[in-house]
Design a protein around this nucleic acid. Structure first.
Length: 234
DNA sequence: AAACCGAACAACCGCGTCCGA
DNA sequence: CTCGGACGCGGTTGTTCGGTT
C-alpha cells in the first residue's frame, strides 16, 4: 500500500486501442483540444498514459491524415528526402502532407528499403552497391524532381532546401497573383540558414530571396503555367 | 484444415531537448 | 543556474494478417 507514484502505471492500459477508447479521445480533443498531454487521459476518461494518447492522436486519429497506400510519387519523394535528410522522419513527413513520421518510417523499413536493394542501391547511403550493379535495370526509376511537383504540394522550407537544390521549379501562388507581391510565399518552420535562393521573373534578372522574411505559412508549388520560377542554389 | 512464415502495421520505450519554476 | 516535467523523435518490439506448404 502507498507505493511510489509510478505504481499507478499498473492501472494503465497498453496495446491496441479499442474503438471505444478512440471515440473518447476524439470526442475530448475535438471539444477541448489536447492541451497538456499528460492530463488528457484523465480528463478524457482513458486508462492510458498521455504519451500513448498523443501517439494515437497524431498517428491515427487526426482528421487531416491521409490513409491508404503510398502513391508512386509519394514513394519517390520519400526516397529523395531520405537521401538528403537521412532518418529524419519528422522532417521527411513535413514534405508529405497527411502522412506521419511513424507511417513513413514503417513504410521505409518494410517496403522501400527492400526496393532500393533490388535496384542495387544501399538504402542507408543511397550509393550503388558494388558487384556490377551498374548493369542492373532500374525497374522503377525515380521521377525527375520537377515531376514531383506536378500537383500542388505544401512543403517545409528545410525539405525544399534539401530537395530543390540545383533544380528549377515553377510556382503557383495561392491567390493567383504575384508570389511576392501577394505575400503568399511564406514558410513553415525555420529558414534554411545555409542556402540561398533566387527568384526569376519572366525573362528578367534573377533576384535574391530572403528566407528569413518568409518564416511562417506555407508554399504552394505547381508545374502549371506560371511565369515565376525558383532556382535553389547551393 | 492446420501450421508455419514473412510482411505490414501499430504501439511502446528510451533518450534528448525545451521550457518554466 | 539548476532541476524536473512535458514533449517530440527515432529505434525497436509486438501483433495481425495473408500467403504458402
Amino acid at each position: 500500500m502507498g507505493g511510489p507514484s509510478w505504481c499507478h502505471k499498473e492501472k494503465l492500459r497498453k496495446g491496441l486501442w479499442s474503438p471505444e477508447e478512440d471515440a473518447k479521445l476524439i470526442d475530448y480533443i475535438t471539444r477541448h483540444g489536447h492541451g497538456c498531454w499528460s492530463s488528457v487521459p484523465k480528463l478524457a476518461g482513458l486508462q492510458r498514459c498521455g504519451k500513448s494518447c498523443r501517439l494515437r492522436w497524431i498517428n491515427y486519429l487526426r482528421p487531416d491524415l491521409k490513409r491508404g497506400t503510398f502513391s508512386q510519387k509519394e514513394e519517390d519523394l520519400i526516397i529523395h528526402l531520405h537521401e538528403s535528410l537521412g532518418n529524419k522522419w519528422s522532417q521527411i513527413a513535413a514534405g508529405l502532407p497527411g502522412r506521419t513520421d511513424n507511417e513513413i518510417k514503417n513504410y521505409w523499413n518494410s517496403c522501400v528499403k527492400k526496393k532500393l536493394k533490388q535496384r542495387g542501391v544501399d538504402p542507408s547511403t543511397h550509393i550503388p552497391l558494388d558487384g556490377g550493379s551498374e548493369d542492373k535495370q532500374d525497374p522503377s526509376p525515380l521521377l525527375p524532381a520537377k515531376e514531383l511537383f506536378a500537383e500542388p504540394l505544401h512543403h517545409d522550407p528545410l525539405w525544399l532546401a534539401h530537395n530543390a537544390v540545383g533544380s528549377e521549379f515553377e510556382l503557383q501562388s495561392s491567390n493567383g497573383g504575384n508570389l511576392l507581391d501577394g505575400g503568399v510565399l511564406q514558410w513553415t518552420g525555420l529558414p534554411p540558414p545555409d542556402k540561398a535562393a533566387q527568384i526569376q521573373f519572366d525573362g528578367g534578372e534573377p533576384e535574391d530571396l530572403k528566407w528569413s522574411e518568409y518564416i511562417t505559412g506555407s508554399i504552394s508549388m505547381s508545374a502549371s503555367s506560371w511565369h515565376e520560377s525558383l532556382l535553389i542554389q547551393k
